[in-house]
């Protein structure tokens, strides 16, 4: 255990890597997911098909397989060879999480009463204006709890890249476990607490957003 506390900077650096991965992948997944959700509820049939195909294919692919594509298959084909590992991790986790975000937002959109969208159309708003000013703000409010769950799952999912060359929290945990065979349980506990703290931050953020947007109603 002394080894962990006397090298605590390594623990913090590893969790910082986890945070970077989670934030970058989270932003990527939110942007792509919102786009996909808009395509799926939108009026253009081609885009609807494209978005639902993406959701079906990627949501049914394990994250590990996604990582194998990005970290092993792509470089073997000469793609992404010079790309930093953090970017590759963001691509894998972000692309994987996007369909879950899209479905959370789509459920939010479906929760907005039809009359809202009809009223917006009646006063002459285009589809884009309708989405931006009327439907999506209400949809995001209804999507906060499922989105929080998705982002929490994603944060924990970043641990998969521990075996794809990125020294994040789980990889660092294995480093300490290997060096301190007599202390494994305590090391697991320390890193579990780290993950709990990260996830609690997201939960608290979600609670805060819910409270704030409730007042706006």
């Amino acid at each position: 255990m002394d080894d962990v506390f006397s090298n605590f900077d390594l623990v913090l650096k590893a969790f910082w890597m986890t945070v970077q991965l989670a934030v970058l992948s989270g932003v990527a997944a939110m942007v792509l997911g919102t786009l996909l959700a808009a395509m799926r509820v939108g009026p253009v049939a081609v885009l609807r098909t494209v978005a639902s195909t993406y959701v079906t294919v990627v949501r049914n692919t394990p994250l590990l397989v996604m990582c194998v594509f990005v970290f092993f298959a792509a470089p073997n084909l000469g793609l992404l060879v010079g790309t930093p590992f953090l970017v590759k991790g963001t691509i894998a986790v972000g692309l994987y999480t996007a369909p879950f975000v899209a479905e959370a937002i789509r459920s939010g959109v479906n929760a907005v009463p039809l009359g809202q969208a009809e009223a917006a159309r009646a006063i002459g708003m285009t589809f884009a204006q309708n989405m931006r000013h009327v439907v999506l703000p209400q949809a995001f409010r209804a999507s906060v709890p499922p989105l929080a769950s998705t982002l929490i799952a994603m944060t924990k999912n970043t641990s998969v890249v521990a075996v794809f060359g990125i020294m994040e929290a789980t990889a660092r945990m294995r480093y300490f476990v290997n060096r301190n065979a007599d202390d494994t349980i305590l090391i697991f506990v320390v890193f579990a607490i780290g993950y709990i703290l990260l996830v609690e931050l997201i939960s608290l953020g979600a609670v805060g957003l819910e409270r704030r947007w409730k007042a706006a109603r």
Binding site: A171, M173, Y175, N178
Partner: peptide, 8 residues
């Protein structure tokens, strides 16, 4: 290999 002594 992740967590190996060699990597450390």
């Amino acid at each position: 290999v992740t967590g190996s002594t060699s990597l450390a």
